[in-house]
Amino acid sequence: MFTGLVQSIGQLQHLSQYQLKITCPTIQDPVLMGIELGDSIAVDGVCLTVEQILTKGFIAAASPETLDKSTLGKLPENGKVNLEASLRVGSKIGGHFVTGHVDGTGQLESAEPTGDAWEICFRGVSPKVARYIVNKGSIAVNGISLTVAECSNTGDWFQTAVIPVTYAETNLRYLQPGDLVNLEGDVLGKYVEKFTRYGPSTHAAAEANMEILGRENTNVKDESDLDMSLAFLAEHGYL
């Protein structure tokens, strides 16, 4: 689990078809502090497992599916990648919950400075992630937690407002129009979609819903009243 707050920018090299080497700027890089074998590190938003620790980086393997669904297999040698170590118990959560499981890709359309921010637009968004893009919702772009400022009805185009420090300290500043980026939709949206589409189908699921909502705070009298719908969520303050 990650927060989408990038800690540093590293460089990626392809040691073999499925083995990647990530080099950090310094040996004191925050991503390397306390690093251990088996740790999870987000590389441009993709959760990878540390297989070997180096003086200034680490080696990780990427599956064929990961390389196919993300940009990692398409980056040039020494390509710039955003890095974030996994969330630790007690750490501050300043972005939003990011799993490191990329849903799809999109393309940079434009990045324009405006006032005290950058307006960055993305197009060609994969349908698998476009469905979770909503105005003022959260989106992870190359592992960066961003807020959607505007979007099309289908979600295949969206715009974000990026503050200068985020633009300067991530690989957003290296992107050129047409470059691909990794995208991950908000995990909360995925659960809401599943509940509203299918609803709980078992007695156990209904009991779990009552436990989450708190029976004493609802008007639920019977498990059959717990059909998880948009109306139900709105009634109980979740929409």
Rank of each mutant, 00 (worst) to 15 (best):
V165D: 13
I144N: 08
L20S: 07
T55D: 14
F97Y: 15
K74F: 02
G115R: 06
Q28T: 15
R197I: 01
V165A: 12
G155V: 01
K92L: 07
D179M: 06
Q19H: 14
G38V: 10
G199H: 00
D225C: 07
G73R: 00
E207A: 13
T66F: 00
S91F: 10
A149F: 14
Q13S: 15
Q159I: 10
R215N: 10
T160I: 15
L5N: 01
A130H: 02
G124A: 00
G124H: 00
A140C: 15
S16F: 08
T170A: 03
C47S: 09
Q159P: 04
H96G: 05
V46R: 00
T154P: 02
L37E: 12
K194Q: 13
G100P: 03
M33C: 13
E36T: 13
T3Q: 04
T170G: 08
S138G: 13
I93K: 03
G106L: 05
S152T: 10
G143H: 03
F195K: 05
R123E: 12
A168M: 06
S16Q: 09
K21Q: 15
Q52N: 12
S201K: 15
A204E: 15
G10C: 11
V98T: 01
L72F: 00
R197T: 14
A204P: 00
A60Q: 09
I27G: 05
T218I: 07
G155T: 01
V102A: 02
G90A: 04
V31C: 14
K80V: 03
T114S: 11
S145F: 05
